[in-house]
Design a protein around this nucleic acid. Structure first.
Lengths: 162, 162
DNA sequence: TGTGTATTGTTCACAAGCGAATTACATCGG
DNA sequence: CCGATGTAATTCGCTTGTGAACAATACACA
């Protein structure tokens, strides 16, 4: 029933579309576990290296510390994680996994693999490698553009909305 | 200062990263205009075809009708858009651009182009075409997987969180 | 015609992002 | 040691997205 032309008005919009679709599929798989995609991303990083500070987590997840703060709040309430003081820096807080998560390690990392398998279905290993390489290039381009923020260059028109 | 290894724990996470980075850059460019990325996506579609129903907009934007509802609310308050009845279907509402948007057509469509130029910097036309083609394949894979939702297949473990 | 089903838009409650402002602490220079 | 400056986390208020539940309308068919 979903045979629609969807002629691309804006080619770059495909990046948003794919990211959103992946989130939808992941969240659907996670619904029975009462978890969200973002939470699993965070937990997977902790499974890789436990006891990171929230700042470190934010860097790994490419989000701000504000978002991490709220997520750790909810994960703590859910009993999946606990906060601990950083002995070297009393401002910082380290985040530690609780056992309930570690015993389900395979479930969590397996889900990431499953979503990737679905995403890359019908693509050769070479194609996947090419895709990931090009995506990384795009990512580096965008990071560079954001770092070199030169407002005087791109505000060359009058604001459209007062 | 941003020389970090960021070794990829999960290759597919690059999709989220790129999408978010694009949003950040777009929002930064839009801040002086008091607009957001999502609003410009919607307005660009209306510039392409004015007077779509909210359902049609939702399909074009690959989001739910709920999200469109809220966005049109805010755009209406901002005076950028107006709602009108669909003469053929009294349930549906059509969304029409106001003149303030049409007179800034180039600004809006130009921004999309600028973000793409930044994203694809240093890449050949062939590479860009390859990337977009592979992204489209991934997108179709994910849409197919979501359409064919078979919960009995993927709930093969006990819920991790009660 | 009437009844059951499907669709459009809305509201609600929620998660997840963001920027700006704040608090508490660290660090660096004199 | 002190004061200025920088940084980690939090709170606030906002936008955007989701699913569930609902009202109004459309439609299909006995």
């Amino acid at each position: 029933m979903s045979e629609q032309k969807q002629q691309d008005l804006e080619p770059g919009f495909i990046f948003q579309r794919v990211a959103r679709q992946r989130l939808r599929l992941t969240d659907k798989r996670l619904a029975p576990h009462n978890l969200t995609s973002a939470q699993v991303f965070l937990l997977n990083w902790l499974l890789h290296r436990d006891g990171m500070t929230q700042k470190e987590l934010a860097q790994r997840l490419s989000i701000g510390t504000v978002a991490v703060s709220g997520m750790v709040d909810r994960l703590e309430v859910a009993g999946l994680v606990r906060r601990g003081q950083d002995p070297n820096d009393r401002r910082a807080k380290k985040v530690w996994l609780k056992d309930s998560v570690r015993t389900n390690r395979e479930l969590l990392s397996g889900l990431a693999k499953e979503i990737n398998d679905v995403s890359f279905k019908g693509m050769s290993a070479t194609e996947i490698k090419t895709l990931l390489g090009l995506m990384d290039k795009v990512h580096r381009n965008l990071v560079e553009a954001l770092d070199a923020d030169d407002p005087s260059k791109w505000v060359n028109e009058q604001p459209i909305r007062r």
